[in-house]
Amino acid sequence: MAEVKLTGLSKHYGDFAAASNVSFDVESGSFLSLLGPSGCGKTTTLRMIIGFEQPTAGDIFIDGERINDIKPWLRDLGVVFQNYALFPYMTVAENVAFGLKQRGVEPAEIKRRASKFLELVGLPGKEDRFPRQLSGGQQQRVALARALVIEPRVLLLDEPLSNLDAKLRAEMRFELKRIQNETGVTSVFVTHDQEEALTLSDRIVVMNHGEVVTVGKPKEIWERPTSAFVADFLGVENIFAPDGFEPGAVVIGGKRFAAEHDGQGNRLVGLRSTDIEIGGDADAGLAGRVQQTSYRGSINTYVVDVPGIARPLYISTATDLPIGSNIVLKPRDGAVLILDPDMEIAAA
């Protein structure tokens, strides 16, 4: 078990900053996700921790030891790759044994440990198979066993689930969580999938354009996204500029709604489609007209034109609303998110 600390880590390619001033801590034994769209610098950050990229500035510490100048093969880290990177001409057992062999472990002990970890990942008895004889999910498990068997200080995972189909991905997500709990290994997980990050992590680092946007627990980030980018990335459907702010309230479409804010005028507001109530007092709510509907089973999503708001609102509700019907809507209490304007709002 080890803790990881990054301070001001940057990687520049000429004028291009792949990662700039990235700082965060990973507590010993915890699970941290680096979340962001492709090209946000999360993989670059991970590769700097592994040692495949040399940082332009900043430091990486593991248990207080600065490891910037330590060669990748001496860092004692376990890595799981997006494409698994299993050695194709080695059997499962040989793949798992590879790291132990480099450490001079004797054959009997290698065998014992390899089968122990294959059991841990749920693949007992597959020692003599070749990677190509295994399914994607099984290959993923071998890759995990291979990285864990060396009992690394930190486990680093680079989008390990993205090559699996939706059903397997959900299954492997639980497996990953179970295995991480059982081994208690400190883990850093790179993903662009917010659901993966939310379900797996103790803490999430959201990145964009090479920079850290926010750091927090999944619940905090989900319930109180602080910036428009984070909100958008987490699937908040309605993000727009309000008419203005008043003490303890925000003005939308000429109506006041209670919301906590810091009084700065350039903030945006965010509203989840599921956080909008329909009906109620016409004076307290906003009047809207249903433009489009899309049927999604138990809950339908509607596109609603609201005079006074530049873009139509997305509303999810179980109520059946015909196109063209006029409705009254208002945000649930405390559901209006106040967001840093770190993103361009697309025109309607």
Binding site: I50, F52, P72, W73, D76, A85, F87, F98, A147, I150
Partner: peptide, 13 residues
């Protein structure tokens, strides 16, 4: 990534 995997497992270049 195969070469990188080997190095991450402790193999020298």
């Amino acid at each position: 990534s195969l070469e990188e995997a080997a190095q991450s497992l402790g193999a020298t270049p």
